[in-house]
């Protein structure tokens, strides 16, 4: 299957997606709360891709869901263009959600097993009503073709008759059918085989361009995130550590945790002074460490890191970092 370069005329109708101080907590009983996301801000300008990088439990998927208000954050603001999503009523919220679409990790479970591909792809239009001239069949076939599927072969199939890669293509087709402004991709390739991963990544890359989409791309793999993003936000235990332009991030990033992630890439030499880690135990998100949350694993942590939480500060244009021990200009 080739990644199609055709598809709709390039549009830049996307609005800026901006989240400020988003907090998401889940009660787990006995008065305890999981601090999944603790005050994260981000901005995705139209037509660009923000990568969110982190390990399991860092809150990267939670913030992705909070952006489309599923569930809405406990506090903080999410704005799509001029629209404040956290204050919308249920009907307006449903309409606003449809302007952002989400691609999930497990493509098989993201498709209702009892539906056929053509109905799955058409789902969004059937919710909002289809008022165009072109018949459903033509639009569905066109969309299937533009995500690299053969309409004849898959149109009448159920999800369990397709491979994982094909299911992910159907998910992408379903999302693109809504003509969204923002696409949130939550680990879209981590359940796929190596050779299929590249196909899907290419499809997302070309679709984002030809449909004029902004993307939030969430993953744990540094190389994958770097490859598709304009900017990369690194998260650790519900907080953002560093936001860095992706282009040279393997050289310019300075936060000790980002360095640790980079050093964990197989075959990468551990030459950066910050790349070592102290302890291997991940602190519990029920009771995160005081001050800087990474300090328990950080090789350069001091008393100040326990006492005072580092703020995000800009050390180079478009490059912010939350660490007491990084000098301005270090990211050069």
């Amino acid at each position: 299957m080739t990644v199609t370069e055709q598809a709709a005329p390039a549009r830049t109708h996307a609005s800026t997606l901006k989240a400020t101080d988003v907090v998401v907590e889940f009660p787990v009983g006995r008065g305890q709360k999981v601090h999944a996301v603790s005050g994260v801000s981000l901005e995705v300008p139209p037509g660009t891709t923000l990568g969110i990088l982190g390990e399991s439990g860092c809150g990267k998927s939670t913030i992705g869901r909070a952006l489309i208000q599923l569930p809405p954050p406990d506090s903080g603001s999410v704005r799509l263009g001029d629209l404040e999503l956290t204050e919308l009523g249920s009907r307006d919220l449903r309409r606003a959600r449809a302007r952002m679409q989400i691609i999930m990790q497990d493509p098989v479970s993201a498709l209702n097993p009892r539906r056929k591909v053509k109905d799955l792809v058409w789902e969004g239009r059937s919710i909002w009503g289809h008022d165009g001239e072109t018949p459903k069949e033509v639009l569905v076939d066109d969309m299937l073709r533009s995500v690299g599927l053969d309409p004849e072969a898959v149109r009448d199939k159920h999800p369990h008759e397709l491979s994982g890669g094909q299911c992910q293509r159907v998910c992408i087709a379903r999302a693109l059918m809504m003509d969204p402004e923002v696409l949130i991709c939550d680990e879209p390739v981590s359940s796929l085989d190596v050779s299929v991963q590249a196909q899907i990544l290419n499809l997302l890359e070309t679709s984002a361009r030809s449909f004029g989409l902004s993307m939030v791309f969430i993953a744990h793999d540094v190389s994958v995130v770097k490859n598709i993003s304009d900017q990369v936000m690194v998260m650790y235990l519900g907080k953002a550590c560093e936001v860095v332009p992706s282009d040279e991030m393997h050289r310019t990033s300075v936060h000790p945790y980002t360095r640790l992630l980079l050093a964990s890439i197989p075959g990468e030499p551990q030459d950066h002074p910050h790349a070592q880690q102290v302890s291997v135990e991940l602190p519990s998100p029920l009771d995160p460490p005081s001050g800087c949350r990474f300090r328990t694993r950080c090789p350069i942590a001091t008393d100040r890191c326990a006492a005072e939480e580092p703020r995000m500060r800009e050390i180079a244009p478009g490059h912010t970092v939350a660490c007491h021990h990084v000098a301005v200009g270090a990211g050069k």
């Binding site: 869901r65 489309i68 599923l70 449903r94 309409r95 959600r97 449809a98 952002m100 679409q101 989400i102 999930m104 990790q105 497990d106 479970s109 993201a110 498709l111 209702n112 789902e123 969004g124 919710i127 909002w128 998910c171 379903r174 809504m178």
Partner: peptide, 12 residues
């Protein structure tokens, strides 16, 4: 399941 999340994201 994720397909329910997907349906909500579509505005169902």
């Amino acid at each position: 399941r994720e397909f329910v999340v997907a349906a909500r994201a579509l505005g169902a």
